[in-house]
């Protein structure tokens, strides 16, 4: 039996075990060190080729062919732009994404900092703060709907404390107040997950770095501003992108609490065309185009945000 030596003799023990085969040359090529990683990645490649690449491409193709199958650049986009509530959905999505992310970060950072000092009960409070994010989003919508209906508990509380004389009909909210409503509910749900990320970032700041600043005269605020904040910047950047991506795709709360069309968002429109008026050929095209547009917006937002944050950091991350 020939003893084929590989370039890396440490792994030669593997080939020794394959020695028994007659056509060991073939075995060696298949199981040689070079090809193993590619083999292991093959299932993933295959999966993504079929179930990601293909849909993405076919989706794009759908967007650029009209209903008769001919190539068109803007026909479907025209359909989309003219579709019901499209303009408003873009406006709402933009406002929602921008404002809610900022709002959530302020609250999450505040809570993360407060809960970071390990006082008695801080673990328990952290646990409580995390509950909303563990609840299925669909259930969250129902949770809040039970409160927002005319005889719901929100009105009960408001009237109990005499804040209002008559119950507010939340369900009639329209326009910006509807968006605000969705934003508040979303904040309730999502802030915990932001807080967790920031919290772990905060814990990663070594104690001695803060002590050194304190030794040299920094006040608590200076320590936070000059030391802590810059160090947790990577956590903040990562999580903002993820939040942004999710925020752009908001829809379930709007639909379940207020109903279709009351607070239009990009993905809410997609759900509309899939759930409420499927079957129309225009619906299909509009849905495809909307998906495509949403995806493009998400990617664009990500890239833009990364560019801005890289520049601010001065390229040292």
């Amino acid at each position: 039996m020939k003893n084929i030596k590989l370039a890396d003799s440490k792994k030669s023990s593997i080939t020794k075990l394959d020695n028994s085969k007659q056509n060991k040359r073939i075995c060696d090529t298949i199981f040689s060190k070079k090809s193993v990683p590619y083999l292991l990645l093959m299932p993933a490649f295959a999966f993504y080729a079929i179930f990601w690449l293909a849909p993405v491409i076919s989706g794009m193709m759908e967007v650029f062919t009209d209903m008769d199958g001919n190539f068109t650049l803007i026909e479907n986009f025209k359909l989309m732009f003219q579709s019901d509530l499209f303009g408003e959905s873009i406006k709402n999505t933009a406002i929602f994404a921008a404002v809610s992310v900022v709002l959530q970060y302020f609250i999450a950072l505040l809570l993360a900092v407060l809960l970071n000092s390990k006082f008695r009960g801080s673990k328990f409070l952290m646990f409580i703060a995390m509950i909303p994010m563990a609840i299925t989003p669909t259930a969250v919508a129902i949770l809040w709907k039970t409160g927002l209906i005319k005889e719901g508990w929100i009105n009960s509380i408001l009237m109990f404390f005499n804040i209002v004389k008559k119950p507010i009909v939340f369900m009639n909210a329209e326009g910006l107040s509807a968006v605000l409503l969705v934003m508040l509910i979303d904040t309730w749900t999502v802030t915990p997950s932001v807080m967790i990320i920031l919290s772990s970032g905060l814990q990663g700041v070594q104690k001695e770095l803060k002590e050194a600043a304190y030794t040299f005269g920094a006040s608590k605020w200076a320590i936070f501003k000059d030391i802590t904040l810059p160090i947790i910047k990577p956590s903040i950047i990562t999580s903002v992108i993820l939040r942004l991506i999710a925020a752009i795709q908001v829809w379930a709360i709007a639909v379940m609490v207020l109903g279709y069309g009351k607070a239009p968002f990009l993905v809410e429109r997609i759900a509309f065309y899939v759930d409420v008026v499927p079957g129309l050929p225009t619906s299909e095209k509009i849905a495809f185009t909307l998906s495509f547009t949403t995806t493009v917006i998400v990617l664009a937002a990500t890239v833009i945000y990364l560019r801005i944050s890289r520049r601010k950091t001065g390229g040292n991350n």
């Binding site: 609840i135 259930a139 772990s200 956590s235 950047i237």
Partner: peptide, 24 residues
Amino acid sequence: IIPALVFTFIIRKYVNQMWGGVEL
């Protein structure tokens, strides 16, 4: 909700490790 609640809490320790200091 119930399974979602249970599992989220179990993996939250892991979430902590993952996201702390992750850079893109």
